[in-house]
């Protein structure tokens, strides 16, 4: 009988995690800008706004995020996309407060964080949120 409850419990937990992650997928958040960016991130900054996408070797959705962001950057003036593989750079992820991949940071040329997106970004809401910061 305990086994039945364990199974029902596991199904409930899976359902809750699934709903939570689907709701949070692509959500845009803003946080107070941190003063010093890690060097590997700073090296990627371009004029205008740079979308720095943090990925790992083991991240399947990172590929989808890359396709969306690269296309968005190609069509938008002043927007650049760069991918940083943090599989072997856990300190960079920790310093940026990034716990999951893909996470995308929108950074201005001087390194100010405009916003960040957890999971695979949603094209329309992202471009809407970026518009005030684009030339």
């Amino acid at each position: 009988m305990t086994g039945v409850w364990a199974l029902l419990g596991a199904l409930a937990v899976a359902g809750a995690i699934g709903v939570l992650l689907k709701v949070r997928e692509g959500r845009i958040s803003r946080r107070a800008a941190s003063a010093d960016l890690p060097a590997p991130v700073r090296d990627l900054l371009a004029p205008g706004v740079t979308l720095v996408q943090l990925s790992t070797t083991f991240c399947a959705p990172c590929r989808h995020a890359k396709v969306i962001l690269r296309d968005l950057a190609d069509r938008t003036d002043g927007l650049t996309h760069a991918e940083l593989d943090v599989t072997n750079l856990p300190d960079v992820a920790t310093k940026l407060g990034v716990m999951r991949t893909p996470t995308t940071l929108a950074l201005t040329a001087d390194g100010t964080e405009v916003l960040r997106v957890g999971g695979v970004p949603k094209r329309d809401s992202l471009i809407e949120a970026l518009r005030p910061h684009l030339p």
């Binding site: 899976a14 699934g18 992650l21 083991f58 856990p90 716990m99 991949t101």
Partner: peptide, 19 residues
């Protein structure tokens, strides 16, 4: 939980939480 999330939603919990 991990297998079901993978099967039903194509979500790899371990991969996203790698960091």
């Amino acid at each position: 939980v991990a297998a079901l999330l993978n099967a039903a939603l194509g979500l790899c919990l371990g991969c996203e939480m790698y960091l």
